[in-house]
Simulated scan of single mutants.
Amino acid sequence: MKIIGIDLSGPSNHKDTAAVVCREEQNQLYIEDLQTGLSDQAIISIISKQAKENNKIYVGIDAPLSYQDGGGDREADRELRSYAKHLGVKSGSIMPPTLTRMIYLTARGIHLAHMIKNSLSDKVEIVEVHPGIALASRLPIEDRSQAVLYKKDEQSRKFVHKWLSEVYFQLVDHVEESSTHQLDACLAALACWHWSSEIKSPAWHMPEQLPHHPFPFSC
Score class of each variant (00 low, 15 high):
Lys2Phe: 02
Ile3Met: 08
Gly5Ala: 14
Asp7Pro: 02
Gly10Ser: 10
Pro11Cys: 12
Ser12Asp: 15
Asn13His: 11
Lys15Leu: 05
Lys15His: 08
Thr17Ile: 02
Val21Gly: 10
Arg23Tyr: 03
Glu25Trp: 10
Glu25Gln: 08
Gln26Lys: 15
Gln26Ile: 03
Gln28Glu: 13
Tyr30Gln: 11
Tyr30Trp: 13
Tyr30Met: 06
Gln35Lys: 14
Thr36Gln: 08
Gly37Ser: 05
Gly37Ile: 01
Ser39Arg: 06
Ser39Val: 07
Ser39Cys: 13
Asp40Leu: 07
Gln41Pro: 09
Ala42Pro: 08
Ala42Asp: 11
Ile43Ala: 07
Ile46Arg: 05
Ile47Ser: 14
Lys49Pro: 00
Lys49Tyr: 08
Asn55His: 01
Lys56Ser: 11
Ile57Cys: 13
Tyr58Leu: 01
Ile61Glu: 12
Ile61Met: 11
Ala63Asn: 02
Tyr67Met: 09
Asp69His: 13
Gly71Asp: 14
Gly72Tyr: 11
Asp73Val: 07
Glu75Ser: 04
Asp77Gly: 01
Asp77Thr: 06
Arg78Ile: 09
Glu79Met: 00
Glu79Ile: 02
Leu80Ala: 04
Leu80Thr: 01
Arg81Asp: 11
Arg81Asn: 01
Arg81Tyr: 02
Tyr83Lys: 02
Ala84Lys: 06
His86Gly: 09
His86Cys: 05
Leu87His: 10
Gly88Ile: 06
Gly88Asp: 08
Lys90Trp: 04
Ser91His: 00
Ser91Tyr: 02
Gly92Ile: 08
Pro96Gly: 15
Pro97Val: 06
Thr98Ala: 00
Thr98Arg: 11
Thr100Trp: 05
Thr100Asp: 09
Leu105Pro: 09
Thr106His: 05
Arg108Phe: 09
His111Asp: 05
His111Arg: 05
Leu112Thr: 06
Leu112Asn: 09
Ala113Ile: 01
His114Glu: 15
Ile116Phe: 09
Lys117His: 13
Ser119His: 09
Ser121Cys: 14
Lys123Met: 07
Lys123Thr: 13
Lys123Trp: 12
Val124Cys: 15
Glu125Pro: 04
Val127Phe: 01
Glu128Asp: 01
Glu128Thr: 10
Val129Met: 13
His130Pro: 07
His130Phe: 13
His130Arg: 09
Pro131Tyr: 08
Gly132Trp: 00
Leu135Val: 05
Ala136Ile: 13
Ser137His: 14
Pro140Ser: 12
Pro140Arg: 07
Glu142Met: 02
Asp143Ser: 12
Asp143Met: 11
Ser145Leu: 06
Ser145Phe: 08
Ala147Ser: 14
Val148Asn: 15
Val148Ser: 15
Leu149Tyr: 14
Lys151Pro: 12
Lys151Met: 11
Glu154Val: 07
Gln155Gly: 11
Gln155Leu: 04
Ser156Tyr: 10
Lys158Trp: 00
Lys158Tyr: 03
Phe159Ala: 03
Phe159Asn: 03
Leu164Gln: 13
Ser165Ile: 07
Glu166Gln: 06
Tyr168Ser: 07
Thr180Asp: 01
Leu183Cys: 02
Asp184Lys: 01
Ala189Tyr: 14
Leu190Phe: 10
Cys192Arg: 04
Trp193Lys: 02
Ser196Ile: 06
Glu198Thr: 01
Ile199Gly: 12
His205Trp: 04
His205Val: 02
Met206Trp: 04
Met206Leu: 04
Glu208Gln: 13
Leu210Pro: 05
His212Lys: 11
Phe215Glu: 14
Phe215Asn: 06
Pro216His: 04
Ser218Thr: 04
Cys219Leu: 10
